[in-house]
Computed example of a mutant assay.
Amino acid sequence: MARRTEADGTPERRVWPRVLLAALFVAVTALVVGTLAATRVDTPASSEPYTPSALATPTAQPTASATKHPAPPRVLLALSATAAWRAPAGSCPGTPVTLEYTTDAGVTWKPSTSAGSLGATSVLDLERGLNGAVTAVGQMPDACAPQQLTTISRADKWHPLDGPVTSWFVVPGSPASINTPTGALPTPCAAVNSVQAGTEVNVAVLCDDERLFRSQDAGVTWDSGFWVPGAVSLGGTKQGYIVAAIGTPMCTGVQLEIFSPKAAPRDRSSAGCHATNADLGTVQVAVGADTVWLWVGDEIGPLTRDGNNWK
């Protein structure tokens, strides 16, 4: 894989060629064109304890042989082949979490002092903002209402951002619901593992029972879904979505699957395997600037591709 977080020496630097990764996504989803975009969620600040505005009722039954995979306990944002942010998901109320960033492809990580001073005890989302900024959605211990934070890309200058929250995330306290540009909406999941928005209207949710659902109207309606055996994490790309799966017969490690934003003759394809001996109990996938990052156990960093294998 890419990088270990322990001080076990300086690993070989591996950088994914953008042209090859872009070609992979184009080949798999040739009929799909999408653009990642920031989206709005109207969640006003409040001094009152946070209460979800919508509770979802699951509309589809999970596959009997599926394994439960709860939402990952950490969050990863890939910016490029060398830069990324990460954080524990935390909880609210709870103890303050630490955001960290790297500019050397995960060889070293530096904790954010400015984010720590804000006192957020959970991170619900990390994503690119406008004009090169990075945004986070966190919860403060006073009321636990989702609050948007922002900083300049690769800079440790986090501060609260006034106005509506502009991210998609699972509604705290209502695991079957997601926040959308029009407020909280139900999903087909009994519990959402993760949510990714491709555009203002294209969004996907990965359920904790290994099912993937896609919407083309900002979460109002959903397709019939896919069962993705072993699915544990969901990432977003300009062309669609990438799912990380474990325990598959064709891969000793993490299997990568690509899905287009909508139904098409070729809307799903295997992208290959990342073989690893790392602990598969916690897996996070993210995509940034045509680079796929994986956080598997204590290994984290960008991947390179060698045929059908990812390293």
Rank of each mutant, 00 (worst) to 15 (best):
260 S>I: 02
221 T>L: 14
232 V>D: 11
218 A>S: 15
258 I>E: 14
245 A>R: 13
227 W>H: 15
247 G>A: 05
223 D>T: 03
224 S>H: 02
254 V>G: 13
257 E>R: 14
235 G>Q: 02
220 V>Q: 15
222 W>V: 02
257 E>W: 15
231 A>D: 03
245 A>I: 02
218 A>M: 11
229 P>A: 08
232 V>Q: 11
219 G>K: 15
259 F>H: 15
228 V>L: 15
235 G>P: 09
236 G>S: 12
222 W>L: 01
223 D>V: 09
260 S>K: 10
229 P>F: 09
241 Y>W: 04
235 G>E: 01
227 W>L: 02
235 G>A: 15
228 V>I: 15
226 F>Y: 15
244 A>N: 08
252 T>E: 12
237 T>A: 12
229 P>Y: 12
261 P>S: 10
261 P>G: 12
226 F>Q: 12
253 G>N: 10
231 A>W: 02
240 G>D: 13
226 F>V: 02
236 G>Y: 04
229 P>N: 12
251 C>G: 05
237 T>S: 14
257 E>H: 15
230 G>K: 00
230 G>M: 07
229 P>C: 08
245 A>L: 01
238 K>I: 03
253 G>R: 07
259 F>L: 15
227 W>Y: 14
231 A>E: 07
254 V>P: 10
233 S>E: 03
219 G>Q: 14
260 S>F: 07
235 G>M: 01
229 P>S: 10
225 G>N: 12
236 G>L: 05
253 G>T: 06
238 K>P: 09
229 P>T: 07
